[in-house]
Design a protein around this nucleic acid. Sequence first.
DNA 1: ATAAAGGTTATAGCAAGTATAAAGTCAAGA
DNA 2: TCTTGACTTTATACTTGCTATAACCTTTAT
Lengths: 277, 277
Amino acid sequence: MEKLTIGQMAKLNHVSEQTLRLYDRMHLLEPDSVSPETGYRYYSIKQSAVLDMIQYMKSLGMKLSDIKKHLECKDPALIKSILHQRSLQIDEEIRELKYQKRAIERTLQSYRRYETSPPDGTIVLEYLEERRMYCIDAGMNFYDYGIEEYEEMLRKLKTRLISDNLPQIYFCNAGTILRKDDLERHRMYSSEIFVFVDKDFVADDLTVVIPANIYLCIYCNKFEKEKEYIGHLLDVISEKGYKIVGDYICEVITELPFLERKERGMFLRLQIPIKFS
Amino acid sequence: MEKLTIGQMAKLNHVSEQTLRLYDRMHLLEPDSVSPETGYRYYSIKQSAVLDMIQYMKSLGMKLSDIKKHLECKDPALIKSILHQRSLQIDEEIRELKYQKRAIERTLQSYRRYETSPPDGTIVLEYLEERRMYCIDAGMNFYDYGIEEYEEMLRKLKTRLISDNLPQIYFCNAGTILRKDDLERHRMYSSEIFVFVDKDFVADDLTVVIPANIYLCIYCNKFEKEKEYIGHLLDVISEKGYKIVGDYICEVITELPFLERKERGMFLRLQIPIKFS
DNA sequence: ATAAAGGTTATAGCAAGTATAAAGTCAAGA
DNA sequence: TCTTGACTTTATACTTGCTATAACCTTTAT
């Protein structure tokens, strides 16, 4: 029955000495014997089994205080239920990580798009793929107010996202909608705000799909210039004889650190779906 | 420019007041203005954008101190590289979680097996599926020593697992091997110790596959009785005229909280692969 | 005027350790 | 025997991103 010092025990089991001292203090794993004169801790190699058990339970995501309880009173049913719970929790964590990963991909993509965006005022025709948006009606006309009211609307949208228990991760690719009818009548009315979401996003009632189409787009770096630039788009449409086939979208193309002067960065892509008539 | 109190700002953004105070103290997000008399913090709704940014970066797994750095000096290249790193890290975390989940499944299964195990001394024929083991040769004959040397061997195995950067989670389903030749000559020699691992476990050189086969098994609840019980198995084999077709395995069937009297629990399934001649 | 609601600071706690300092102990070589 | 270096002890503070509490002050509504 050879006695191991704390350093030897630590090395054998790949934990730190401090960790062993901590476990001692918590009465999770007490040394086989302690010298009464010097206070030195001496372990038996057989106690490695306890450390294995602790590490195993830790790897299942249990906390030390729970592990202690289970080392003391081992209730098979309880442990089984903990394992089952943990299994479900792992599924959840994996799901969350996958969301995160997609959000990162989207951010990088959005970043590349920002870097390659044409300069302010440029008008181009772009084919845009089908997109999904999570959309709410804020009940007030966005164009009658300024950026502060826009932030307020965004807060409402966020509240909805949270109360629907959805990842806030989408919250960086927002925009507003001006309905086709209003646009054609040159009536600046928009009370709807949205965020773009993933294909497998689930929130049926508030999720709207907009089809792939050719869009006449203008890039805009100032929130205040939106109305003027819509005018430019409408001019081009009537000049070239295009036909408006859907709602106007004001999309915020976020620079990754999307803050400028401590405000939301506002590089916009204003877009109207058209068809060549 | 309406000013919001800390409570209003907190509610609008779904964070706690304490969190806002913390961000203030860390200079992550300072109120728009602070009353010199009362010290009351007043926020502008536009500062919500900063909170969105913080929450977004947090959701990417960044820590507040890093977020602060990036809000101060935004270097696109750096941020891109952080996002890329994080993406790789997420893959790693997902992989780890999947390992955990499988380990839990295996534990539950092993638990059920333990619960339905026949009593000590029972001899049965069992068909066992193909299994994979991660196996090392400890260079000493296990049968010449006691449980302490067995623990020592286990430590060596664990060291290998760790240095191979493999999850320690497998470390609860171990066993030893007695080679066919030695077994047939009734020579008790075993220097090899293993853990069972998953199908998609990658450590080519040390991973051994043992084929599915019929095994003559005996259950054993005391480490010390192993030699005696091997004798029983061999008796049955010669009596019935079975033929030994592979190595003998001593498998530790762990009770989930596998500690008894602060030592490793030792419920064993001793097994010899046979064929009916 | 007063009470309720909301704000302020300071402090401590969580979880599972890590890092450090200051001091005591052990084993080996000279 | 002495010294040196490696090792051990305790106590304390730090980490991270908050949450909780206490004790006290301000605003707002009745």
